[in-house]
Design a protein around this nucleic acid. Sequence first.
DNA 1: ATGCCTTATTTCATAAGA
Length: 258
Amino acid sequence: MVRLATWNVNSVRSRLPRLLDWLAQTQPDVVCLQETKVAAAAFPAAEVAELGYATAAHGDGRWNGVAVLSRVGLVDIARGFPGEPGFPDVETRALGATCGDVRVWSIYAPNGRSPGSAHYAYKLAWFEALAAAVRTEIAATPQLGVCGDFNVAPTDDDVWDPAAFVGATHVTPAERAALADLRSTGLQDVVPTPMKGPRPFTYWDYRAGMFHQNMGMRIDLVYATAPLAQRVASSYVDREARKGKLPSDHAPIVVDLR
DNA sequence: ATGCCTTATTTCATAAGA
């Protein structure tokens, strides 16, 4: 059994005590992290190494930043992907690594800010380039998972109230088409089980008691090739990790692979 | 609710998040 997880931690330094506790309790083998908000050289690799994890980090400071932690091997590390667009410079939003028999990409898609904006066009272009890169890699890499914060809710059921998102990013047809194009490379959505309520939300805004009222979104996803998806024994959203003091605004997804 | 928290930084104000 391999336990794979993905979590947008919203600053790995700010979240470090919680991350270490969560690793010790959850015992994942491979962890994709997003929004680490730290330069690669400043990633707290020594702290996670004490728990048995090797680190591959891709980050340049204040914004973005992704990483992969693994205790089952960590090789063939790719920082960014071929043709990755920038805004205007390429940002630290994607890191690929092979961990044992599984290749993972930890991704943090651009937010998009508002439909029609330059940042929205960047988001769509970024997904298009990601799909092209996956299309190239997937042929030689049957056991591939693309995991992370996609910043798109795949369907209207993946937001707490579609009416609240009219005119907003994350739900537009073009963004959903970008996800469909990515899936068409040979990936499928591994939908996790919610620990509470009918829908597996992974993000709740910090403000106005959104988490308490379960006004969330499913924007963190695990996209897996068929050979990898066939190994999925179970998956769940760890909403317990969203509770308590100083949480991330995202919850982890935990996937158990046979 | 075009900012109800939270983050890092060119910090006591701003930009970004979704």
